[in-house]
Amino acid sequence: MKECIQMTNITKQYGKKIVLNNLNLTLSSGKIIGLLGPNGSGKTTLFKTIMQIVRQQAGEIKICGEDVSYLTRKYISFMPDREFLYKNMTVYNAINYYCDMFEDFDLKKADELIQILNIDRTAIIDQLSKGNKEKVILMLTLARNVPIYLLDEPLGNLDPLIKHEMLKVIKSVSNDNNLIIISTHLIKDTEELIDQVIFLKNGQIAANFLKDDLLAQGKTMEQYYIEVFNND
């Protein structure tokens, strides 16, 4: 297992609001990690900081052993929680665009994911339902061959069938050489999938544990989540 992300004393503020507060985190490949926390706990900012599309005010980040910069983006495939593609793109156009922009984009893998997720290549992305849009973006994100995948709220407000398909696809991409981090509120939906759980509270790590350790204590993730966040 390789060390993929190492964050030391990371602080990020938006104006006077501290979003990440002296955060320390080390994550290795071979796992699917659930990043959980209430709204405003800093999940998206944590992802954006790893991507360096927002910059920390203090602290050090290493991605695959390299100091974080725009160059380390090549190690990360990021699925943001909002739309970012051109309005008139079809799925086919988006695949070609990704193929042109990202050297690590794997067309064969994209084909397989399209099959599993049952995506129509000719559809205009902007005209798709929210669930189908999410499927397309997930397909584009996972079709890249990178060591780190950051999925920001990939399952929000989706119907159970689409959720099931997406979870299946995420599981199929996971291997010993990559790290998948999913930020979500949907504890029950992701419980099956994830190996390690990180609770983020007020910009700090409130808990970081292996799912199996928790299960050994006879607790579910949801129970523990309520325990941690109910104290506010």
Binding site: M51, F84, L85
Partner: peptide, 14 residues
């Protein structure tokens, strides 16, 4: 624009 987020994901030279 929202597409700048897509641009930002690319590690190729700004």
């Amino acid at each position: 624009n929202k597409t700048f987020l897509l641009e930002s994901m690319i590690s190729s030279s700004p």
